[in-house]
Amino acid sequence: MRITVDRELCIGSGACEALLPDVFEVGDDGVVTVLRPEVDPDVADEVRDAVAQCPTGALALASEGDGPAG
C-alpha cells in the first residue's frame, strides 16, 4: 500500500504529522510531504487513522497495481 496526497486539498493541518511524525511532515510550502509513502506494516493501523482523520480528505491509500488516481 502507498500513501497518496492531493496537494490541492491539503491545508497543512498537521493532523497526520501529529500521529506519525516519521511518516508525514508539513513542508515550508504548507503542504504535507509523505516521508515514507510505502506503508510500513508495523504502523499500518496508525496510517489508516491518519488517512481517516485528515480534515480535508487529502490523504488516501492506494493498493499496489492501482493506477496513479488510486
Binding site: C10, I11, G12, S13, G14, E17, A18, V26, G30
Partner: peptide, 14 residues
C-alpha cells in the same frame, strides 16, 4: 488554502 498555507507549518506539532 493558498493563504492558509503561508502559516500552516508554524502551527504543526513538529
Amino acid at each position: 488554502a493558498k493563504i492558509r498555507r503561508i502559516v500552516s507549518k508554524t502551527f504543526t506539532p513538529r
